[in-house]
């Protein structure tokens, strides 16, 4: 049990006219090494939820455990928890402030007292983890780079704290297709090669299809669905009820089923879908 929420309710500005209940009695456990996608329409509480994962917010009611320790405002290890669970906000490149890529990525570990060759090695490792060339970029001004590169530098500056889990809020928003592909590919690498626990918040269901094994669907502050990705993504009517446009692959599978092709709805990628269709075509031509 790596991150665990038990009956968590979170209320913004309680006892004021602006009181807003963002999370209602949520229970959720995420194990070490999992890759979880969190999806839901704007305002469903996704961002509030993930801020509980690294002790940026504390529940109004309920309990949060991180790595075996119950967390509250007075916990002695908050700093360590925030290092362990790296949170990448939406448009993280807006928070870049240093004048060189090196200084930006080194900021966190340097604050923790790291110096010399250890620091240099950490910066190099972090940049390489997101597919950026250390020597080429380290002295560059981050503000002169492309949007996709800035986004990856912002992610690298979280990775430099060597987190055990990475929580990302809409990591591909606003990027062009190439920038998006690059981010998804690097996150997949971190997960598969480094065993980083990945928690991804996204509106884009087709992005999650490439990366997540488990999907949590949020709906007005509660959890609407939670299960293996293929189970969740094949429940088209249910997804639509929560305002989520089903994955394109599932919609095609659905149309084909109406025409008498028995295609499983849980197909996730064009590769899977086309190979299912191929099999069905070949079966028919043999009959």
């Amino acid at each position: 049990m790596f991150i665990s929420l038990e009956n968590v309710t979170y209320i913004y500005l309680p006892h004021t006219p602006f009181e807003l209940t963002a999370l209602k009695n949520i229970s959720l456990t995420i194990e070490r090494g999992e890759s979880v996608g969190i999806i839901g329409r704007t305002g469903c509480g996704k961002s509030t939820l993930i801020q509980h994962f690294n002790a940026l917010l504390f529940p109004t009611v309920g309990k949060v455990w991180i790595d075996g320790e119950e967390i509250n405002k007075k916990s002695p290890h908050l700093r360590e928890i925030r290092r362990k669970i790296g949170l990448v906000f939406q448009y993280p490149e807006h928070q870049i402030f240093e004048e060189t890529v090196y200084a930006e990525v080194a900021f966190g570990p340097r604050n923790n007292g790291m110096t010399g060759s250890e620091l240099e090695e950490t910066v190099r490792w972090s940049l390489e983890s997101v597919g950026l060339d250390y020597h080429f970029l380290k002295d560059k001004n981050p503000f002169e780079l492309s949007g996709g590169q800035m986004r990856r530098i912002a992610i690298a500056s979280i990775l430099s704290m060597r987190p055990e889990a990475l929580v990302l809020d809409e990591p591909t928003a606003g990027l062009d297709p190439e920038g998006k592909r690059m981010i998804l590919q690097k996150l997949k690498y971190l997960r598969e090669e480094r065993g980083t626990t990945l928690i991804l918040v996204s509106h884009n269901i087709d992005d999650l299809a490439h990366l997540s094994e488990r999907i949590v669907v949020m709906d007005r502050g509660t959890i609407g669905m939670d299960g293996p990705i293929r189970d969740v993504f094949s429940q088209i009517e249910q997804l639509e009820k929560y305002g989520i446009k089903p994955p394109t692959t599932a919609r095609i599978a659905e149309l084909l089923m109406k025409k008498g092709y028995d295609i499983p709805r849980g197909v996730l990628t064009p590769e899977e879908l086309s190979s299912e269709i191929k099999q069905k075509i070949l079966m028919r031509s043999h009959q």
């Binding site: 394109t248 095609i252 086309s274 190979s275």
Partner: peptide, 13 residues
């Protein structure tokens, strides 16, 4: 630097 819609990509495959 663009990509095909999922439908077109499936058809291409």
């Amino acid at each position: 630097g663009l990509e095909l819609p999922l439908v077109t990509e499936t058809a291409w495959l």
